[in-house]
Nucleic acid binder design. Structure first.
Lengths: 188, 188
DNA sequence: CGATTTTTTGAATGACTATTCAACTCCGGA
DNA sequence: TCCGGAGTTGAATAGTCATTCAAAAAATCG
């Protein structure tokens, strides 16, 4: 039996880039064909349909995001410092030319009304991220405070993912984060 | 000369409902035709094209939003109390069956990558909302603090517009807002 | 190597897209 | 009452959409 000739993860990364930038509706399968170099038939055999490809791309993105959060916090001098680092990284990302917010957030907003299960999936993945923050924060304080702080972090992450589209917003975002999350060990 | 047979604002309100729920790409002009009851030719004569209709819908939505913010704050016992009221209203909206976040926020995220001027427009309207909050807050404190608090408010509004899609999130959002905006006169 | 199974190819499909326009209707002014 | 311009009609257009499938190619196994 013949094995697939392409690297599934490479294809998914190209699909992530496309879907992330343009969203589900505005990305055509013909653009996917162009971006991946595969033929339509190969894509449909491997992923079923557009929704299947999108789902797998979303799942991969989410896994990468979770891994990056863990790495950043585990590699920082303290949990709080790690969380600050994550915010700073997100601010840096918003400076890039082709800033794309967060794939999960964009999907959440775009597909909510169609209530297909892609929206459900994005919501679940975002809950997973909140749960991860909560599990870290519970180590530094009691469970209830950790829960509250995780919510506040998510509100600020979501907020900056939208605010980041404003021109020259990096400095203002940082001010807003310091004001809203005063318990974090921000630098001088 | 014959006058237009339809009420422009009525048509725009129907367009707002459609575009708000499904977004720009996922709304077809045939859906617009169905929703408004107009024929294609009439729509194109009145609004030029899909982008023109969307632009006018977005502008009308934005004007309504600004007016509602002003009314809420002016009708409240204090500026702070009015802002609390706005947040509470937004939480209530997130409880509705067909919650649609905010038309401006959704547009901002959906159309950023295409960098057409609809995205620019949404960004400008959102800045206008921030400026309105700032002008109120400067009355209650000095200019610099008002500016900072307006940013923090926008971060929280954006945040809750995304977080609101999570199931049974109303209570958690309120907790997060109280934690992140402790200078507002929240109820008991 | 031959047989078998899997993967790739890429043109074709029918549905849907935004938009147009010639013919038609309507209405205010003369 | 009748004219002329403004609004309406709705079928038609050319393009794009997601998806399919028969045929060709490639890879694995005995």
């Amino acid at each position: 039996m013949a094995r697939a000739q392409f690297d599934r993860n490479e294809v998914l990364d190209k699909a992530i880039a496309l879907f992330w930038q343009h969203g589900y509706s505005a990305s055509s399968m013909q653009q996917v064909v162009k971006a991946t170099g595969l033929q339509p038939g190969s894509i449909y055999l491997a992923f079923g349909n557009k929704e299947g490809l999108f789902r797998e791309a979303l799942e991969r993105y989410s896994q990468k995001s979770l891994a990056r959060i863990r790495e950043t916090i585990d590699g920082a001098p303290s949990i709080g410092a790690g969380i600050c680092r994550i915010f700073e990284n997100n601010i840096e990302a918003s400076l890039e030319q082709n800033y794309c917010s967060c794939f999960l957030v964009k999907t959440q907003l775009e597909l909510a009304a169609e209530n297909n299960d892609l929206h459900e999936l994005a919501a679940k993945q975002l809950q997973g991220i909140e749960a991860l923050f909560q599990s870290y924060l519970e180590q530094e304080s009691d469970a209830e405070l950790g829960r509250q702080r995780a919510i506040s972090i998510m509100l600020h992450i979501f907020g900056m993912r939208v605010y980041g589209y404003q021109r020259d917003s990096a400095e203002r975002i940082l001010q807003g984060l310091r004001a809203g999350l005063p318990w974090l060990p921000w630098g001088p």
